[in-house]
């Protein structure tokens, strides 16, 4: 009984039990006043990838996060908003100044340690700032910018 529970716990932490997100599902919508841009995981994976290896207050140890840099994405769409209002699946949202996201090359992580991120493990998209590389980011204000389970980004 106990062994079973332990196994389950380990599997949980790895997110291995989570069902993979279908590659052709729209997982991200960039909402502009005039238009909306939809992205599937496949489309996002096709964009130039950026990797950040960092620890976070909600995980244990260092992990390698991979995804498209917010800056790159905005350039692709030819957008230059002041602020990004990032909405999560659970209705949480946060306003992230574009300049900060650019300055630290924050990414919309789709993979952790090479694995796609499930919803049960902050996926499918997680705004990652390089906290380990820039200790000055390790404070409440920036922690708030790191929205997980991202679904929509409104360019304001």
């Amino acid at each position: 009984m106990k062994t079973w529970r332990n196994c389950l716990a380990i599997l949980t932490l790895l997110g291995a039990t989570a069902p993979a997100i279908a590659a052709d599902n729209v997982i991200l919508t960039i909402d502009q006043e005039s238009a909306q841009h939809h992205f599937t995981l496949q489309q996002l994976a096709a964009l130039p990838q950026t990797t950040i290896t960092t620890a976070t207050p909600w995980t244990t140890g260092q992990h390698r996060y991979q995804g498209v840099a917010i800056d790159t994405l905005l350039q692709r769409l030819n957008l230059s908003p002041q602020v990004l209002k990032v909405h999560a699946l659970n209705d949480f949202w946060a306003r992230v100044p574009t300049s900060v996201a650019r300055q630290y090359r924050a990414i919309l992580a789709t993979h952790v340690d090479g694995q796609p991120m499930s919803r049960r493990n902050k996926g499918p998209l997680w705004v990652i700032f390089p906290l380990s590389e820039h200790p000055e980011l390790n404070q409440e204000k920036y922690h708030n910018y790191m929205v997980w389970q991202v679904r929509t980004i409104k360019a304001e």
Binding site: P57, T59, L89, N90, R120, N121, K122, H143, W148
Partner: peptide, 19 residues
């Protein structure tokens, strides 16, 4: 979705320094 969100929330609660 609500299942996954609850799961994720508990995972976050049980992992890391923040909580």
């Amino acid at each position: 979705l609500s299942y996954d969100i609850a799961w994720n929330r508990m995972d976050v609660f049980l992992t890391g320094d923040a909580n």
